[in-house]
């Protein structure tokens, strides 16, 4: 069998077509089975069951995981699974057809990405808010006092990159305060910024209040007045293609309830 590269590529292309054709064929029975499930689950109101998939911004990881335990205590037949990640990534996944029931975004702009695509069922509701705080290593070795210290070139400072939500918020508060920050690194997310503070490698960074609380004793938070210029709203919505719409609705109502609000407040979020 003497094959030229061209013949080899032709075979590869043929294989690709065959694979995509197979994928198309498999879609048909899958659609049938979901249709059966939803028609069977529809009549009864109180007995929710089945898997419930919640896509939520990474900052909600701890509080949503905790709330899921309370939720399943009320609805033992529902199995809650989470996909935590950057809201931008989640929005992309949802618009690409990921089988999610609920989307809780860490900002309104990524929620807009989902609603404009027609992937949301109904209007999103803002369920909580988060604001920035200065995060310093335990003991505050560089004696950071307020936002003005971010202009000091002698300090090692990091903020989130302008492209990520915490970075956009940081830009807003610096603009409001009239400060040009002198930073050494533009971090890809809150976690990366906090790691550098926890290790004492940077003197200060700007992250959300909830992140400072979640980081524990190795990080201290310092409030500053300009933070009110960049209040981050968290909207939640059920999704149009939700495989389990009843459970999705129940979850959203649960997050908006007093129980949900109390858990969010403990984690450092504030009510809208």
């Amino acid at each position: 069998m003497n094959l030229t590269v061209r013949q080899l590529l032709a075979v590869v292309a043929a294989l690709f077509l065959a694979l995509t054709a197979c994928g198309g064929g498999k879609d048909v029975p899958a659609a049938d089975s979901t249709g059966e499930e939803s028609s069977a689950a529809a009549p009864s109101e109180n007995t929710l069951s089945g898997p419930l998939t919640v896509f939520a911004g990474a900052s909600l990881t701890d509080v949503f995981t905790e709330l899921a335990e309370l939720f399943t205590a009320d609805h033992p037949d529902v199995e809650v699974t989470f996909n935590f990640g950057p809201s931008s990534g989640l929005a992309t996944q949802i618009n690409q057809g990921a089988p999610a029931d609920v989307f809780a975004s860490a900002n309104t702009s990524q929620m807009d990405v989902v609603t404009q695509d027609g992937s949301a069922a109904g209007e999103p509701t803002v369920f909580t808010e988060n604001v920035l705080q200065i995060a310093v290593p335990a003991g505050n070795p560089a004696n950071i006092a307020d936002l003005a210290d971010f202009a000091n070139p002698d300090l090692t400072l990091a903020i989130c990159a302008p492209r990520v939500p915490c970075g956009a918020a940081a830009e807003t508060v610096f603009a409001a305060a009239g400060i040009t920050p002198s930073v050494d690194s533009l971090e890809e997310d809150v976690r990366a910024a906090l790691t550098k503070v926890e290790l004492g490698e940077v003197d200060a960074t700007l992250v959300y209040v909830t992140d400072v609380i979640a980081a524990g004793d190795s990080v201290e938070g310092i409030d500053f007045p300009e933070t009110e210029e960049a209040v981050n709203a968290y909207p939640i919505v059920t999704l149009a293609a939700a495989p389990n719409p009843d459970a999705a609705q129940a979850w959203v109502e649960f997050i908006l309830s007093d129980v949900g609000a109390a858990a969010l407040e403990t984690a450092g979020f504030r009510s809208p």
Partner: peptide
């Protein structure tokens, strides 16, 4: 991105720029 951080001109290499653009 962990050890060198990310700053255009000094430490922002292409993979870092790609990742941030993806956001």
């Amino acid at each position: 991105i962990t050890f060198a951080g990310n700053f255009p001109g000094t430490t922002q290499t292409m993979p870092l720029a790609v990742y941030l653009a993806l956001q």
